[in-house]
């Protein structure tokens, strides 16, 4: 009897975590009005070698990965975060939903990914996000990542970190990022990260029109082992055009004042 009860309670708790993560990342929420949803592309030919340049459409959110195993400190930080999916806009302490604070990386590759572009320069790849018109630099010239970023004497932590990349084979780009500002959340579910987190992005271009992304987190202070945070998928946009998609603080404050808060 007691074992049965414990199993039921554990199952219920696991379900809560699962639904929170799945909802927060946009899967199964009924969002269907995106370019990604409407594009029905064939392969479009083979993937060109070492080439992601172009404008891609992702869904509003990626797919949640495995449930991470948190350390005690990780549990404390996670418990302090009140994600919008559970607490609504009026009750969340997610700085993005309340004041349009920058999503930061890797969250910006997992939420509001309706437009993402890659631009190739001589020594780097630039990843541009339509949402908030944010860009990241991926150094491809053999540069080393900064050591001790975010610590006294080291490079400053950043919302979008420091990134280097390399081609693992003809169609797989692997990017490593460090130096992330710990004020940002890993995803909408509110998973935290430390300033020492290492993030791996693995982009696999399976054909001309399709690109898969897997994001893996290594952060021993907060997680007992590396884990796949999420995956995301992108489709080639035929007309290669971006939208302007801005979250404007004065407008979101109006939204809170006139809609979200009175509705509670």
């Amino acid at each position: 009897m007691r074992t049965w009860l414990i199993r039921l309670m554990m199952g219920a708790a696991a379900s809560l975590v699962f639904c929170s993560v799945a909802t927060a990342q946009g899967s199964g929420t009924g969002y269907t009005n995106t370019i990604y949803d409407k594009l029905n592309l064939g392969p479009g030919g083979p993937a060109p070698r070492h080439e992601l340049t172009g404008v891609w459409a992702g869904p509003i959110g990626g797919q949640a990965g495995e449930a991470p195993s948190l350390t005690e400190l990780g549990k404390q930080l996670f418990a302090a975060h009140k994600p919008e999916a559970a607490y609504k806009v009026a009750g969340t302490n997610d700085p993005y939903f309340r004041t349009c604070d920058p999503l930061g990386f890797p969250r910006n590759m997992l939420f509001e990914t309706r437009g993402v572009a890659f631009a190739t320069m001589a020594d780097r790849i630039i990843i541009l996000s339509q949402y908030q018109r944010v860009w990241r630099e991926i150094l491809m010239d053999g540069s080393q990542l900064p050591k001790d970023a975010g610590h006294r004497g080291g490079a400053d932590s950043r919302y979008y970190g420091y990134s280097v990349g390399h081609w693992e084979n003809d169609n797989t780009l692997v990017v490593q990022t460090v130096g992330l500002d710990p004020n940002t959340w890993l995803n909408n579910a509110g998973y935290p990260h430390s300033v020492d987190a290492q993030i791996e992005e693995r982009y696999v271009r399976t054909d001309h029109n399709h690109l898969q992304l897997t994001i893996t987190i290594t952060d021993p202070k907060l997680y007992t082992k590396p884990f796949v945070l999420a995956t995301n998928a992108f489709k080639w946009i035929p007309d290669q055009r971006f939208d302007e998609q801005l979250c404007i603080p004065s407008q979101v404050l109006d939204y809170l004042k006139f809609v979200a808060d009175p509705a509670q």
Partner: peptide, 29 residues
């Protein structure tokens, strides 16, 4: 009492899932 509590928790979780799967704040409407 324990069994009833466990069942309530389970249904509570399902309720949270259902409301969480709606759009931002739509359960307020």
């Amino acid at each position: 009492y324990m069994a009833a509590s466990a069942v309530l928790v389970a249904f509570g979780v399902l309720g949270v899932c259902r409301s969480a799967s709606a759009h931002h704040g739509s359960s307020a409407y």
